[in-house]
Design a protein around this nucleic acid. Structure first.
Lengths: 206, 206
DNA sequence: TAGATTGTTAATCGATTAACAATC
DNA sequence: TAGATTGTTAATCGATTAACAATC
């Protein structure tokens, strides 16, 4: 299995990672494919199939050891190290992101938070001081950051994306509702709760 | 096409809705499948195929009229009305959600915001006053709310979910990192930016 | 042993894509 | 007309699922 994972497999593996991380926090040692299925709505056979492509990680009649499976999946996803990311915007959403354990839990380190508002610069959010937006380019370059999270209002999102990309960022998470124009070698991830909701409602209503 | 949409089609149609809404805000009248593809990373042929299953909405050589396509997709997804949702948690994340146009833009109305913190109760966020958590059950029942958005810390998330479900909620959006145990007839949607990031990094690194 | 759960097979279905005629 | 873009076909590939032997 030296080949590149398909998009679907990689997406599912990262979801298993999330479930395993939380299950461990809840004090569990082992977990079955059925339990992972209950939490992810991914079919249990599919889960066993995804995993068995890389090795025999489970014990029949018992399930999977959480710690060891976490290690295996991290190896497959090559995501064992620490990753530095930049956060743009120190408003309510930026503060919520910076103070959430959700990134740290997965080895992702918010290396810098930027804002254009002079009132916000210097204040600390999470364990970081807000850096002036003007220093974005140098900081991103110096710290070799390739991921930027955009948590600014829609009308500033494209500019933030342009500046991040100019500084070398290759992966952008867009939390504004704006559509971003980016070069072909940059990946944009956007999550829109309203869109997901419309889709959930469809299945509820039919 | 009276059949229920597959999960994939419904998910993609809601993403087209998002792109069309934003494109219209940017002043555009028409859009091609290729443009939608650029914004969504969904293959242009797939987009045309998804749409042509329901009718001939486009004009060859021209593209799709944005307003009319918006209407058609809303019809297909049966999501033309207003939907009331409840927001649990008036912290930074709750405030960010309540003050974002992201829900209103798609006809989704935040009907109530709840918090257990007496300091937060009564304060207004967005255009709403924060309601005491104790009134959750009655409010959700009275207003016939079937969607709840959980924006509380992980240690309160399960309790919030239990209370919402007891009051009749069938769709839960979980913005905490906790795993939720819910009955089989309740749909949980969780979005974890860290998980998406691990997955994005994999494709960047390989 | 008895019960549980994995790993794997086989069959089916939907997603994806390239290619291109139709036509605006 | 000439260029652009849809709608559709056909072929391929991955996802999904049920079923069950293997085995802890």
């Amino acid at each position: 299995m030296a080949e590149r994972l398909t998009v679907g497999v990689a997406a599912r593996l990262s979801r298993y990672l999330q479930v395993l991380t939380q299950a461990r926090k809840m004090g569990k040692d082992r977990i079955s494919s059925q339990e992972i299925s209950d939490y992810t709505n991914i079919n249990a056979t599919q889960i066993r199939r995804d995993l068995s492509g890389f090795g025999k990680f489970g014990k029949r009649g018992v399930g999977y050891n959480i710690d060891s499976l976490l290690g295996e999946i991290r190896k497959i996803l090559r995501t064992q190290g620490q990753h530095n990311i930049a956060l743009i915007g120190a408003g309510r959403l930026g503060q919520a992101i910076a103070s959430s354990p959700i990134f740290a839990e997965h080895g992702i380190n918010i290396a810098a938070v930027f804002d254009t508002d002079p009132d916000k610069v210097g204040r600390s959010i999470g364990s970081l001081a807000v850096t002036p937006y003007a220093e974005l380019r140098d900081t991103v370059r110096d710290r070799n950051i390739i991921v930027g999270v955009i948590a600014v209002p829609a009308d500033g999102a494209q500019e933030a994306a342009d500046d991040l990309i100019e500084a070398g960022v290759k992966i952008v998470f867009n939390y504004s509702e704006a559509l971003l124009n980016v070069p072909g070698d940059v990946a944009v991830h956007a999550s829109n709760p309203a869109v997901e909701l419309l889709y959930a409602l469809y299945f509820h209503l039919t």
